[in-house]
């Protein structure tokens, strides 16, 4: 049963996207990755609206103080096992908003992150590459566990 579940998980990683105060640049690139030119659906990736249906939390933005509680709540609502991808330099390290008074400066300050995708913003190709790397990571875990 577990084997069947993990096999299905690797074939259809569903994403949920949350912007934590970024400039929108990464968000439009993430959506562009879903559209015909790049088409991530060929990897079984689907953008899902509800955290309860999602396997991967794709976070953009440097995490503002006001949005932090929401981010944690969305993370807590996701079923196990769950993975977090930090998309863009803001989500990776907070730059260029690193010293601003209202940001935490990076998703890993609040959540455990599995894959970092740097770039301002990363191109859709880079986002796809990052997510495929995450899929390989999940595969590796499954063959070990």
């Amino acid at each position: 049963m577990t084997k069947a579940l993990s096999w299905a998980r690797v074939k259809s990683p569903w994403l949920i996207h949350f912007n934590t105060g970024g400039c929108n640049g990464c968000d439009i690139e993430l959506v562009a990755a879903l559209t015909p030119r790049f088409d991530v659906e060929r990897f079984g990736i689907l953008l899902e609206g509800s955290p309860r249906h999602a396997d991967i939390l794709a976070v953009t933005g440097p995490v503002t103080l006001q949005v932090k509680d929401r981010l944690l709540r969305i993370y807590e609502q996701m079923p196990e096992p769950k993975y977090v991808v930090a998309i863009g330099t803001c989500a990776v390290s907070g730059a260029p908003f690193k010293d601003c008074y209202n940001v935490y400066g990076g998703v890993d300050k609040v959540l455990p992150v599995d894959v970092y995708i740097p770039g301002c913003p990363p191109k859709p190709e880079a986002i796809i590459d990052g997510i495929v790397k995450l899929i390989q990571k999940i595969k590796g875990e499954e063959s070990r566990g």
């Binding site: 105060g21 503002t64 006001q66 601003c100 209202n102």
Partner: peptide
């Protein structure tokens, strides 16, 4: 509003 407030105007001054 304000979920996206990062403090950019203050950052401009620095």
């Amino acid at each position: 509003i304000g979920y996206n407030h990062r403090g950019i105007e203050k950052a401009f001054e620095q």
